Amino acid sequence: MFLRSAHIHVIESGGIRPVILRLETDAGIVGLGEAAVAYGVGARAAAAMLQELAECFLKGEVDPFRTEAITTAIRDFSFWAKGGGAILNAALSAIEQALFDIKARSLNVPVYELLGGRLRDDLRTYANGWYFGCASDLELRTAAEKTVADGYDSLKFYPFATILPDGRLRHPAHRGAGDRDLVGRGIARVAAVREVVGAAVELMLDLSAGLNPADTIRFCHAIERYDVAFIEEPTEPDDLGALTLISNRISQSIAVGERLYGRQGFRDLLESRSVAIIQPDLGNTGGIWEGRKIAAMAETYGVKVQPHICASSLSTAIGAHFSAAIPNFYVQEHFPYWDRTPGHVEVLKNPLEPRVTKGRLPIDDAPGYGVELHQDRLAPFLYAAVDLS
């Protein structure tokens, strides 16, 4: 069995811009993957990189079962994969994910069986994105209350972000001396959300590297009374010195990882002992098997794993197989109200999101990732078709 074709889609219907890969073999078996740069800038760049990697590394009687050989060749001979950033690693991730899907479908097993078998039957989730569209702090309180009423006992939000009229977030780029208004506004938001959801609900805060270390420390000290489960990205992703400084000065657990790539990107972080939770994104850190290797590294340091998921519903399905099979799983990121966000749910005929009950995500036991692309909806968004024969 060899690879026959690759189809790359960039869904440009608003909201987010998922980059979807569909690999097909000469036996008609299809594998799916996603380059998880659907938010921010870079979707078309990742699609172009996917096309180029497919043309360079997947052509000419390539056996899709030789996943490690293919991904190793990309890392060794693309040149830019060594120390590479989001665009190359996102494209590599989509290829690796699709190869795992092909292998699992060929063997008629779920992907989690290729990762060691599942350890749990469903996944605890935390709600993200519940604050989209809130134009005031009062509306933020109302949205938090509604989300808890919908069955979620864990919520994450951005205390410093400005929510734009179209629902998008604008994060601060604060690098100067103490901006008391910004920090004070963040403290007030945390207090307000904690008040409305009660003590039993878990709160997580994503700072998105928006403050300098001194202000981050001051903010974390001020919110100690509100029992925050973790602080995400309290500093620049590659500034291990600042992360260690903050970790030594605050009581909250720290979570990072969505902007780190491959095992090498997590090695020094784990050795620093400055984090309690890592958040590899399986769509930009190298793929689901690379994520499994990273999780094993984290396990040796007693660090929990919470995969970062912020793309289409395909990424949700891929993340579920990963989370089902790792011992140190913490919680699954989930956007419960993104069924209203074009580009998220409609890429699949059978997304997992509508099946979430009381904040628990099911694990599908169908072959592969257990999901099927909605080809009719994706057809207008074809970026490239590559003949691999």
Rank of each mutant, 00 (worst) to 15 (best):
S312L: 09
D63W: 04
E113I: 02
I163S: 01
E346M: 05
L114H: 03
G31W: 08
P336C: 09
A325W: 00
D153I: 03
A143V: 12
E290D: 06
M49I: 10
R218Q: 01
L169E: 13
L119C: 07
E290K: 11
G31T: 00
L88V: 10
E12T: 14
E346K: 08
N89H: 13
L378K: 12
R377E: 05
A38Y: 02
H7A: 14
I163M: 07
L114C: 01
N248F: 14
L382C: 06
D376Q: 12
I309V: 10
H174E: 15
F132R: 15
R267W: 03
I318L: 01
A135L: 09
D137P: 06
R105L: 10
G291W: 04
P307T: 08
R185N: 07
H171G: 15
C56R: 15
V371A: 00
I363C: 00
R225V: 15
R273M: 04
E34Y: 04
R273V: 02
R225F: 14
T67M: 07
W338P: 04
I70K: 14
A46N: 02
V347L: 11
S93M: 05
M1R: 13
L21H: 04
M49E: 09
L119Y: 07
D227N: 15
A135Y: 05
D365L: 03
A214V: 00
I246W: 08
T285I: 02
Y158V: 08
F329W: 03
P213Y: 01
L352G: 07
G151H: 07
R170W: 12
L203S: 12
V303H: 00
G14C: 02
L243Q: 04
E55F: 10
N108D: 12
I74A: 11
S274G: 06
P172C: 15
P213H: 05
D365C: 02
V111Y: 05
E61N: 10
Y330T: 12
